[in-house]
Design a protein around this nucleic acid. Sequence first.
DNA 1: CTGAAAGCGCTTACAG
DNA 2: CTGAAAGCGCTTACAG
Lengths: 347, 347
Amino acid sequence: MTAGTGGARRTTLADVATRAGVDRSVISRVLSGDPRLLIREETRQRVLDAVRDLGYRPNVAARTLRTRRTGTLGLLIPDYANPVYAEIIKGAEAAAAERDCVLLTGSANAATELNSYLDLLGQGRVDGLLLAGELTSRAVLDGLTADGLPWLLVNRTLRGEARHVVLDDERAAALAVEHLVGLGHTEIAHLAGPNGADTARRRNRGYRAAMRAHGLTARLDWTTRGDYTADGGYRAMLEILDARGRPTAVFVANLASAIGALHALRSRGVAAPAQMSVIAVHDLPLAEHLSPALTTVRMPLRELGRRGVELLAEVGPEEAVREVVTGPMQVVPRESTAPPPDLQERM
Amino acid sequence: MTAGTGGARRTTLADVATRAGVDRSVISRVLSGDPRLLIREETRQRVLDAVRDLGYRPNVAARTLRTRRTGTLGLLIPDYANPVYAEIIKGAEAAAAERDCVLLTGSANAATELNSYLDLLGQGRVDGLLLAGELTSRAVLDGLTADGLPWLLVNRTLRGEARHVVLDDERAAALAVEHLVGLGHTEIAHLAGPNGADTARRRNRGYRAAMRAHGLTARLDWTTRGDYTADGGYRAMLEILDARGRPTAVFVANLASAIGALHALRSRGVAAPAQMSVIAVHDLPLAEHLSPALTTVRMPLRELGRRGVELLAEVGPEEAVREVVTGPMQVVPRESTAPPPDLQERM
DNA sequence: CTGAAAGCGCTTACAG
DNA sequence: CTGAAAGCGCTTACAG
């Protein structure tokens, strides 16, 4: 046998039709469950038997060419290494599988990469596109719309666009602040995410709103900006430690930053939680094993991915979608948060 | 405009042909760079202009139906949350893009999931399949072969199969042991990976071979088994600490396990590296920020993904492939390894 | 109840 | 140098 397809010709509808002694169209309609098909039970059995015996599976390309539906949804993320996206992918994949759809995940972390990825996707490779991460521009979205390709922003919004599904980042920030306030903290800093990140802006906004709601001051020099990486979190935590006065707690915008922040505290000899409580957005098994074990806010990321697929599949491409996923969101208390030093002394 | 395709009919070859005033076949041959096409430069320009003006992009389904090539390769991984696979995916994606191929990544962590994923993939969705992780059985591979779908195991081998690309896990283990021996250690334990994992078996084998090569004893009760997670590493490290006598160093089979192992050492009050050196396979930015910063062996994971795609695309499906990727592999020394206590005292 | 036909948009061997 | 034709494997409206 020569290299190449490595096997015999695939079974087609014609093969099944011959075997079952009916027309190809009958097979097709039986398999697609056509409700307008009238067929004798005995014929239907013959068809099903033939399909099973020959191991027939429809040719995807032929079906797509005919129906203009690929049964594939695309998901574009900036970085596979970010566990946040891993969770989103899992939820999206599960939802896609439930609708007999394949999920085609790709990564792009620069505008040029994104464009070449869209080129690669070509015409008619996917029925719709979920766009996570920050690099999507208005121009790209307009291009997709012009191509007739439905899209939906996931975990981000874009000014003037009304096609997105996000988490309640404001509420996550509020939960974190309330946890700290509940422990007695009043001097609470914020290690924020990058300026370009929509989630970072909303967590920052949520932090400020929650501080205000508790009559606390969100000091400007106690809000420093990381970039959602451990390295960035390390640097941003040092900035907070170098500010005039020292907060007793810090709300960190994501888990990777918090790992760097804990490192910065160790390197300056600041004990956590004795001298500084730390709470971060996103819960992962890892958090349990850090030193100290990290208090987190668990976010419904899987649910976010799931809803992305559902909305993309169900809502017409011209309709507005502005959904905030309200899955389980809660503080997971571990060792990194405790009452502030002054309260501890009194105990 | 109604919901649905959300736009006008897509541009087809016929539209371009009309615009350029030539037959459809000419457009097709110009675009595919048919070497047997004789065409006047001026006609070729007209064709190219028409393609550009109309923004023509070939319909993937029609092309696939005709050529039997999808331009898509599949990659099946067990878990998106594992950063090892994130790196493999990145390498594979880059190599696929270079060959104008799309990479369709999917996850399955149980045999039933795998089968339903393959069903979902259907017939003719991908030109070949890369299989990473442990769950692939002989039966699945035979099924793929029967379907005429080329496949390649990535980061694992399977007895009796000769279609795989792997890393040199034995060498990684040897590098780790040599690093420890170079620091003066002779009592070296091994926190292994799960029994089912091919990489774990090879790292274990490499550890034993390297110990032997240095005239050292690999004590059986100093080899404990984790499961490549932080939780498993925590438990397996406790087992080592509970053994008779205590090693001065431990070679950990992967980074997630090492995070748990460091936690176990802290919880027992064993100082690292003063009382116990730790080195683990796989380097990630995270390692720098652990406490202590973790010494690792950096593995060429991206290169592994890249070679997987290259080999799948280039080697005929009937040919044997047994490749060991020889990318950059090196010890990245950080704080978690140091000379053993007895040597330190003498210094 | 079942079959025959058209056509989705390409590519390619062949005709001129 | 360029065009006409066949056919990849489906689905679906229609004919009987």
